[in-house]
């Protein structure tokens, strides 16, 4: 019996969310007295570094077929069975969201996504998860013997005081995917919004897409990802992949700077879990100021150059 973590990678490197998932699994391991095994289904040849975050062993499965929901999940589920997984941990990224349900079915497990707490074992196996698009949380109990947990990125501290761990290669074969990948367009070097620790976001107050130069400059100076409000993506000023809010992406960065966004309830739903929120808006009545930690009542076109200048100094 073990706790198995799906070690996700991107551009031949393990993702930060993978380190979070292993640190999280280690905490569960200490609660239930089981080892953490990381399963590395990627082109990365050696996953020994995952020991630093709490893995006791890394199982490498060299899979060069690329990611498909059906074949990758089948492969991972068969490894979970072989390792006798009682708890399976994934990140709630697009990859994790594709894999976790299929693995749950294959293992006849209970699953929870958007998980933001370590399980409470006092009366079953209960975790806290985000619901109502960030407007609330629910405590849910996972009733079946095997549990699959997809944890929200940026929700758990990375604990890296371990050391490299043993690795083992496995020759698992899954049936080939029925899906063929035709093209992949990845923006390299850009932080995916859901995993970004710092986010600079802007709304209609920017008056037009041409003014995003300032937003991007501010974001680049502090190493943040950029986001936007719904009207901005609806008008085509920014791609919909940047839209945060109830019908967009829910994010949980350490810092969220909202510029020229009024703070409608649908927008706040997607960002209210951010640790520190800064609102910049010329309307002192903007609802965002009620949900922010810091605020500047002022014109973005006057405030932004000051911020950029201060960062350059």
């Amino acid at each position: 019996m073990s706790i198995v973590v799906f070690a996700e990678s991107s551009d031949n490197q393990f993702k930060k969310s993978t380190f979070e998932a292993i640190s999280y699994a280690k905490e569960i391991g200490q609660l239930i007295g089981k080892d953490v095994i990381a399963v590395n289904i990627s082109g990365i040849s050696n996953g020994a570094e995952l020991g630093k975050y709490g893995a006791s062993k890394v199982v490498n499965c060299n899979n060069t077929d690329g990611f498909t929901a059906d074949a990758t999940s089948d492969l991972f589920a068969s490894i979970c069975k072989e390792l006798g997984a009682s708890v399976v941990v994934l990140s709630n990224t697009y990859v994790g969201k594709s894999v976790s349900p299929r693995v749950a079915v294959a293992l006849n497990a209970s699953m929870a996504s958007n998980v933001i707490s370590v399980p409470d074992l006092s009366n079953g196996f209960a975790v806290k998860r985000g619901v109502f698009s960030g407007k609330a949380f629910a405590i849910v109990n996972l009733n079946r013997d095997i549990k699959v947990l997809a944890i929200t990125p940026n929700s758990f501290e990375i604990n890296s005081n371990g050391s490299d761990c043993p690795t083992e290669s496995i020759n698992a074969n899954a049936s080939p995917s029925k899906i063929s990948i035709k093209a992949v367009n990845k923006v390299t070097g850009k932080i995916p919004l859901t995993e970004a620790e710092l986010v600079v976001s802007a709304g209609r107050g920017m008056k037009g897409p041409e003014n995003w130069v300032m937003i991007e400059e501010l974001a680049t100076l502090i190493g943040a990802a950029t986001a936007c409000s719904k009207p901005v993506s609806d008008m085509g000023w920014r791609p919909h992949s940047e839209h945060v809010g109830q019908t967009g992406i829910t994010i949980k960065p350490n810092l969220y700077i909202a510029i020229g966004i009024s703070g409608a309830i649908q927008h706040l739903a997607g960002v209210s879990s951010s640790k520190t929120i800064v609102a910049i808006n010329k309307d002192p009545e903007a609802p965002f100021f009620k949900s922010a930690d810091y605020g500047i009542v002022g014109d973005a076109f006057e405030v932004l150059p000051q911020l950029i200048q201060a960062l350059k100094n």
Partner: peptide
């Protein structure tokens, strides 16, 4: 598979 036990709201700023 899963039962909902209770709900909470985010802490106010």
């Amino acid at each position: 598979a899963v039962s909902y036990l209770s709900y909470t709201l985010p802490a106010a700023k």
